[in-house]
Design a protein around this nucleic acid. Sequence first.
DNA 1: GTTCCGCATGAATCGATAG
DNA 2: ACTATCGATTCATGCGGAA
Lengths: 291, 291
Amino acid sequence: MEIRTDVYLSDCKEQLRLLPDDSVDLIVTSPPYADQRKDTYGGIKPDTYVEWFLPVSEQLLRVLKPTGTFVLNIKEKVVNGERSTYVMELIIEMRKQGWLWTEEFIWHKKNCFPGKWPNRFRDAWERLLQFNKTKKFKMYQNEVMVPMGDWAKSRLKSLSATDKIRDNSRVGSGFGKNISNWLDREKAFPTNVLHLPTECSNKNHSAAFPEELPEWFIKLFTKEEDVVLDPFMGSGTTLNVANRMRRNSIGIDVVPEYYEMVKKQINSAELCLCESRAEYGKKVKSKVQRV
Amino acid sequence: MEIRTDVYLSDCKEQLRLLPDDSVDLIVTSPPYADQRKDTYGGIKPDTYVEWFLPVSEQLLRVLKPTGTFVLNIKEKVVNGERSTYVMELIIEMRKQGWLWTEEFIWHKKNCFPGKWPNRFRDAWERLLQFNKTKKFKMYQNEVMVPMGDWAKSRLKSLSATDKIRDNSRVGSGFGKNISNWLDREKAFPTNVLHLPTECSNKNHSAAFPEELPEWFIKLFTKEEDVVLDPFMGSGTTLNVANRMRRNSIGIDVVPEYYEMVKKQINSAELCLCESRAEYGKKVKSKVQRV
DNA sequence: GTTCCGCATGAATCGATAG
DNA sequence: ACTATCGATTCATGCGGAA
């Protein structure tokens, strides 16, 4: 079956209205952060950020399949020496819209921006908020397993009986029971902390996230021929990865330069469609690191 | 000057009223999480957590010095497949009380316990919310510097031309400024992500945090003979560390067993007061790791 | 072909200065 | 007084050229 990549030059709030209900398996996006990227997106003020975003999330809720997932990459900026609360407010308001706030992943940025200030350290992390429409969303956990480091093996082997009992009681029912199962495993499930460097090289986009980020979530929440949507596609990282991984994708951006750039990439990618399906795995090698 | 450690068996909401205004330099605490540890604290329900905590934070705001800092270790639990929003709501309500939400540190729990659920991965991080009373709080950044990454070795052999240019770009100020800043530097400032293992030693407290956690914040926000407060002291980790680091400390807990345990530890520590001040550094060695 | 090494740059933030 | 602009600060990464 052929894999489609649809790209639109439009305000996503409007363009999304044209998509049918319950038609998208995964939304991965990184909207412009408040007051950032003024030159391209006009810079949304922190105090109007929530009202700016809610009409978009309302449409996203409509187009997402009941089994689908929405991953929102965002981080609040510092205003007047304080972290802004618009992300907190956004989570609360999106729940009122009907979203379920399932989880918050952490993107630990090892090579965060340098700088020194008297009252704070460098900001080395961003939020990856997972929202769902229902509790019965699809999750393919086996697709993102990571090699178990030696430290983990040794730690697990050295667990004492009392360790097991205490940790079991700490967390509740049936948590410590499965420990012995883990001792033989070569691979482990990851945690909700992702270690990835930011993309520094020139993508003609100041805020492109590393390919490993959408890749990880695409593996985790979709299978081949599913539909991936990025309503703020920017330089098109999400779409490119989705395309390589044989997922259909839809991208929207209001900036003509990004639209043209992504168009060009997609066209050249389609010329290479002779590549066998099995090949993509070699190119999309995971760099998510275990620490 | 003698270092004091005051321990109270009491509900902290009441006991805090007896402390004078503007008398504490640092508050580090990990309150009972919502609906967990029912046996010991009676289990606060997630939907009443905010109203339960606000009277406490109101008193904390009163007793904290204007230059002081409040570090709150907290993580929302999963209720009905969703992350609860009480931490979000708490941040918003505490700001209404007059707190400044300065920063959110991430405690990345390196060796978090294995486990498997169908719809989520292991939770490997917790929030460390930094609140302040004013923007002019004290922060001793040099106390928590970490070794630089390996890249520095090669980089510092020869400074690049652009580095010199960028350093010299300031108009009219001293020629060459501080190239030596780089040459002498073996340490870098940390970020707002802390990599610490979870506590494994046998504390009789169900949610003891590792000593490195309060230690890091005590180094960062206080100096010797300052006052550290933990209104939910539990097994007394914060107090023990403060004591060793020659900070005065105040601990409160409503559970008699914890009170007795901490009392005993403090007494035996005081018997060792003959130890020279210079010695404590050897015992309180940092384990905060660089990744 | 590897490995090594130099180099630009990035969703930043603060404080001072200017309008 | 309140907002807008600007300079200074700083570290890990990936790329490309060189050995």
